[in-house]
């Protein structure tokens, strides 16, 4: 919320923390970095998340995966829609926060609107992408055979620096609507939107651990996220000034054959859901 007070009341400042396993802990490392506005005013002491924070988040995500991956598509769709509702209710807060972090007001309003619309878009896909990407296969033997997508598992997400809110939403919505759970490193340039988004998720009936948000720096956490042996896939939102990231991610991912997605844009479409799905084929004999 805006720190500018228009009365003589002293404002209550928010402590920006991490969002792990449905709770808002400080980083276990006790470290922070200062986020400043364009005019040099300090906006927040932001948690500088550590490798241990990432590992804790992966544990939470793995635990949450067991239930979230087996929820009905209908329920997942309703919960994502609920996230959109909660964000809609907090339009002003998110707009102000983006403005404080340096986004012009018009662009901030548009970014929040697009974020809400993205959530609605993917909420609607929940019970449709399996229909588009499944098949009953006409095998040349007396078997019933079908293929359908299943979530890959725990997905680490290196969210885009900018736009910080829309980029985050575009990255995590296709991951979680498909039944995966996520460990996300939010933008370090504009970390406040990502962290506040945790509050939206927390009030949306999204089970604990399905999305875990960590603030901090890519240089420090990229290897931990890409090499963790209990992570099944990694989404790297590429930054133009960090051309080495994709090789780092691909190299670290080899040991347990993580699925690697490198996005150069934040377009929204159902193929982005499928990047974090596995096709399972099941056979059964047909006969009396």
């Amino acid at each position: 919320m805006s720190r500018q007070e228009n009365s003589d009341r002293l404002g209550v400042l928010k402590t920006y923390k991490l969002y792990i396993d449905g709770k808002f802990p400080r980083t276990e490392s006790g470290r922070y970095f200062k986020l400043k506005a364009a005019d040099g005013k300090i906006l927040a002491n932001v948690c500088q998340g550590s490798r241990k924070d990432v590992r804790d988040a992966v544990t939470a995500a793995r635990t949450a995966f067991a239930k979230w991956s087996r929820q009905t598509a209908y329920l997942r769709g309703q919960i994502l829609y609920r996230v959109a509702e909660m964000l809609e209710g907090r339009r002003l807060q998110f707009t102000e926060e983006l403005v404080e972090q340096g986004v012009t007001r018009d662009k901030a309003i548009a970014e929040v609107s697009e974020s809400i619309d993205t959530l609605v878009y993917y909420a609607g896909w929940s019970d449709k992408y399996p229909q588009i990407f499944s098949a009953v296969n006409p095998v040349a033997s007396s078997h019933f055979n079908f293929s359908m997508p299943e979530p890959t598992g725990v997905v680490c997400v290196l969210a885009p620096e900018l736009p910080s809110l829309l980029g985050l939403v575009r990255a995590i919505a296709p991951v979680i609507i498909g039944g995966n759970t996520a460990v996300v490193l939010v933008s370090s340039k504009q970390p406040l939107s990502g962290i506040t988004f945790g509050e939206v998720l927390h009030t949306s009936d999204l089970p604990s651990g399905v999305v875990n948000l960590v603030s901090g720096f890519r240089d420090e956490l990229i290897k931990t996220m890409a090499s963790h042996m209990d992570v099944n896939a990694i989404l790297l939102c590429a930054e133009k000034d960090r051309v080495g990231d994709s090789v780092v991610v691909q190299e670290q991912a080899i040991e347990n054959l993580k699925r690697v997605s490198v996005w150069k844009d934040i377009e929204a479409n159902p193929y982005r859901i499928m990047e974090f799905q596995e096709i399972k084929t099941t056979w059964h004999p047909v006969g009396a």
Binding site: A135, S141, E278, I279, T281, W283, H284
Partner: peptide, 27 residues
Amino acid sequence: SSHLRAGVVWANTYNKFDPTSPFGGYK
């Protein structure tokens, strides 16, 4: 079969293959 983390599940049969049937692994 939905709990098995595997790309192909044969129920009451095994080692069946067909060009129309996708094949490949998890993990």
